[in-house]
Structures are given as C-alpha cells and as structure tokens.
Design a protein around this nucleic acid. Structure first.
Lengths: 314, 314
DNA sequence: GCCATTTATACTCTCCTTGAGCATAAGACG
DNA sequence: CGTCTTATGCTCAAGGAGAGTATAAATGGC
C-alpha cells in the first residue's frame, strides 16, 4: 500500500498476482465433524478463482455444487491470507488465498474426484474434549509448551509465555475454551511445534496439511464453534428430520465438549427453533424419541440473530 | 475455481489480478465516531498491496503509521470483495479488495496528505439512535421501503419483503438492532435506494462513496458494534486517561444507542477493566469524576475473551 | 451563603437466565 | 417382571441484567 490518494479502482502496475479460493467444507456424520479434503487428506479443496463469476461467494457455491452434487447450505467467508513464508513458497506468495467456510451434509461426493471426508479431530486431536481433556494434552502438549516457555530469555518472559499457554490450552486448572482453536494453533506454531513450521516430522499428534491449510482449518473450526452459539447454523448439518439427541450430538461434536441434556432441550424448545414432525424415531435403544425438523420460518421471523446454546463461557 | 485436485500453491495461468487494501480507520472524538477518508470524504484510504511486506496485516500497519504518524492499536481483517458490477467497473474487477478495520486516536494526520476524518453518521444518518430513532427513518426510509415492498409481484412476496424491512430497520414497533448495519445497507441497495446502485442522485439522506466503499464502511461499523460487546476494544479509541462517562459516551457513539449509566459503570468495574489513576477530571460541569486508565494486564490475564457491555439484545 | 443545576457514585429490587439435579415415562431385552 | 437405556417434565438456587432511588460534590447565579 503505497499512497493514500490513489483510488481503489486504479489498477496497480507490475503487482499482478493470482487469487485462490480455499474451502473448509464441514459435515457431521456419526458424531464426527468432517471436512472435505483432497490429496489423501493432506489439503483442503482449492483452486484459482475464475473471474467469470459474479462474486466470490457465487464462485464457491457453483464449484462446490459441481463437486458434491447438492447445494451448499451456508457459506461464509473466513479470511484472506497472503502471508509470505507461511505458504511454503519461499519467494513469497504472489497469490492471495481467500478462504471460505461451508456447511453441508455428507452425502455422496461427485464420482471421479479425489475428494473425500476426513474427521477434523484427525488434524487437531487436542481439540476434542467430549470425553474429558484428551491425554495428549497433558502428556505431550503441556510438557512441550512448558519447555518452550522455559526457553525464553528472562524469567518475566518465561512467566508470560507460560501464562499464555495456560490460558489458551486451559492448563493449570483453567477452564478449557473451545473457541480458541486458532490461538492454540498459532501458539503451537510460534513454539515451533507444528511440522508445517519446523522441518521436523511429527513433533506432535495431529495430521499436518499442505502449506497453511491447517491454519485455515483452525480458522474455520474456531468460527463455526463461535457461530453455533448464536446462529441456527447447526441445522445446515442435520438431516431433514432428527431427534433432539442427534441435534445435541452434532453440537457437541462441533464444540468438542458435552452439554447438559435437559438444558439443551429447554433452550432449543423455548426458542421455537424446531417443530415436531409427528413421527417417532425407530432405531432405538431406550425410549423412542420424537422427530423434529428445523422451523425455517425463524430465519425470516428473527433477524437471524439470537440462537442460544448451553455452551456459554463462565 | 476449476478443479479441486489442484494444490493451492499451484499458480493459475492467465488469471492475473491485483490486490488492493482498503482501510476503515476509526477514531472517536467529541462523541462522534469518525473514519479516515480521502478525496473529500468520498472514499476510504486504499492502495495496492505491496508484496514486499510479510503479511497483509503488516502492510496495513506500516502504511497507516506512515500516514497518521502513530501506531495503529487494533487491526482486524474485515472482508475480501471481488464482486463484479458493484465496484463500478463494468468490465469486472480484475482486482480483489481486502478490507481492514483499524482503531486509532484521531491525532494529527500526516501533513501533506489529503486524508481527513469524517463522521461516520454522515454516511449512515439512519444509524444514530442516541437521541431516539432519527426522523429520516420514519419520514424517508420507511415510506420508500414500503413502496419497494409493495412493488413485489405477489401479496406473499410483498409481505415477506416488508417483514424483512421491518425486522432489519426496527419498524412496526420492533426493536432496533444496532448490529444490522450491513443488512440495512444491503437491503437499501436491493431496493435501489442507494445512489451507488441506481443512477439517481440522493434518493436518500447520507453521503455516498466511491465504488463499494460505503459497503465496506457498513461492514466495519457492524463488526465494531458487535465487537465492543465482548472484547475490550473501546480502549483503543480512548486517551490514556478518561472518566467513566467519557468511556460510556464513546461506546454509545459507536453503538448508536444510549446505555444505562449505573449499569455501565457496574459492568466496567466488576470486570476490572480499568483502574483509578488517582487523578480527578478538571474541566467539569457537576461533580468531578475520577480518572481511569485501561488495565492492559487484562489482555494477558484473560484470553481476551469476555468483556461485557450493557448492550445486549433482548 | 443559599439554591438550582449538573454530574458522580452507591445501593437496592425484581425478573430472567442458567447450571444442575431429581423424578418419571416408555421402549427393548433377558 | 426386573433391568437397562433414552426421553421428557419439573424444581431449585445462584448470578446477571434492567431499572430505579438516594446521596455526594462540584458550578454559577442571586
């Protein structure tokens, strides 16, 4: 950015670059949040942006629909990256990556494509706290982070580093905050514990990805975890009819933590987000549950503002 | 986006474009939120992105600091636009606009630049509800929106359109939601009431801007209004020392609505966001107020998560 | 000095939300 | 008929948020 007096529409000379779209496409099946991947799970789907489309959003939708064979429910822009050095391209990226979050149902993927679905906790094992804090946190991450903190030059810096680690990862009896996915990844990156950063192989559990795709994924997970608390986006990931427990399991899968069942139902029902279909779930262990469907009318009635889930920070 | 199997780092041929940075730089002075503008207030500061910088954020910071002569407090990416037709360039933009929100104090602007500060309600008069709903809402906007709703083809569509308008603008006794800045702008745009869209001049109050800069500004305002409710970003806009009323006035200026004074103080104090300086405000009508400063330690103590303001949606 | 005016600051009160737990219902299965 | 499992209804206590009352400490006019 050189001169302020230049209008934005004035083209810059000699700074030609390319624009890539990168998509974090999420689905939830069998209580596992999954993302669409290519190249054997080592990259997110991406490709150059074609200016034949009316907008970025349109381009993404069109492309995803060709790939998966069905419309993309919810789409949201995530972030635009142009960091040199992080993309793996040493000469500096003359390419900008515009990333998107998209929610779907994991139906069939278009045949003849390399795409498939990978569980997102394969890439971030420390993010799943549904069965309590995962062992790798205390056994592997915490010691490595402690060592990194200790390696700072002064005692004050050492303390500050460790405080950051403890807050971000919920160590030292602090609460776990499931929304800090990106901060955690960035902190690990800063501590050179991410293979994408250091040249070492597998210092930590969790599958790496090409370039900065894992960072993009972390951004997407963080955004989605925040969003499900105040927008009715979970329903984009559900089948047309579902039981309240299925809905709860999806939320828990995304959030990576459990919620109180009765309170969850209370919130969902009092907000009138769903309505009974009249049908009853068949494949049951225990008392059969009523089936519900999303009341699409809420999107029109309310300004899509105000959907609460019992996942509040205290 | 053509093929999913292509790695993001693979350069696309023949799709060269340029990247622009556009900045929404906010300051609050005398109870007015202001943004830095160029070209007589008709454009946001912007310019081509130089790849000599390490990241987009770095590029923006460097540039702003040269312009205003002091460091930029808080920076956040807003959105990346590439919509053809909205930018005013009919051939389609072979340029991507990456927009940022930045918070500063309105000190001196670097000499010799065309930049100056404009009140943001000059561009969005209907967004300031501090003295109640602004007259232009009921007198000008509502009738025009009603006419637009009526112009839909079927009664059902007419009702749906009006419901959207009423929700978005808080008409028909609905609550005003100050966060819907962008939705309101988009709705007016859809209704061809925005001069940037239709060729007519000044159908509505509010100063227009070049290309889609007013949309970018709306995005920035919306983001900031949402953010002040849960992150301590207001302090970036305050002088080093301030009274609680000054702080409150800044929040109200940004939010475009008033808050309950006693409750505001209660929240700020119980969250320990500020500490007394010991000094007392001098220039006073009424009882002199204690001066406070922001407790920067909170940024380290808490995960920058959880700052509440009495602006909640009910 | 006294009073009206203005702002600062301390409390109180009530309603609602939220976290947590208890209790009962309705199926399957031995 | 018990046991297991999930569904569903209800209660209770603590904390938070909205709104109002009361008092304190300045200023300026008389």
């Amino acid at each position: 950015m050189a001169r302020s007096t230049q209008k934005s529409s004035a083209p810059a000379s000699g700074n030609a670059i390319t624009a890539d779209l990168v998509a974090v496409l999420v689905a939830v099946t069998d209580g596992t949040p999954r993302i669409m991947t290519i190249a054997g799970g080592s990259a997110l789907p991406s490709g150059p942006f074609e200016f034949s489309h009316r907008s970025l959003q349109t381009a993404l939708r069109a492309w995803v629909e060709t790939q998966t064979g069905h419309p993309l429910g919810y789409v949201e822009q995530l972030y635009t990256f142009a960091d040199r050095g992080r993309s793996g391209d040493i000469k500096g990226p003359h390419s900008v990556s515009i990333s998107y979050l998209g929610l779907t149902r994991e139906d069939r993927v278009g045949e003849g494509f390399e795409a498939h679905w990978s569980g997102w906790y394969d890439y971030f094992p420390w993010e799943d706290h549904r069965a309590g804090a995962p062992p790798c946190l205390a056994k592997i991450l915490a010691p490595k982070l402690k060592a990194w903190a200790k390696s700072a030059s002064t005692p004050t810096l050492q303390r500050e580093r460790w405080q950051r680690c403890a807050i971000t990862f919920g160590l030292d009896d602090r609460d776990w905050n499931e929304e800090l996915v990106l901060q955690r990844y960035e902190l690990l990156y800063e501590a050179s514990l991410i293979p994408e950063a250091s040249r070492e192989a597998s210092v930590l559990p969790g599958k790496p990805m090409t370039a900065d795709h894992r960072r993009i994924l972390a951004t997407g997970i963080a955004r989605l975890r925040a969003k499900i608390k105040y927008r009715p986006v979970v329903f984009e990931l559900m089948p047309a009819e579902f039981t309240l427990l299925q809905l709860q399991r999806s939320v828990e899968a995304l959030a990576g933590r459990l919620v109180h069942k009765q309170n969850f139902r209370r919130l969902i029902e009092q907000q009138e987000l769903v309505e009974e279909t009249g049908a009853i779930a068949t494949e049951a262990v225990g008392r059969p549950a009523k089936l519900f469907r999303f009341r699409h009318a809420v999107l029109a009635e309310r300004a899509v503002v105000g959907t609460k889930l019992p996942l509040s920070r205290t």
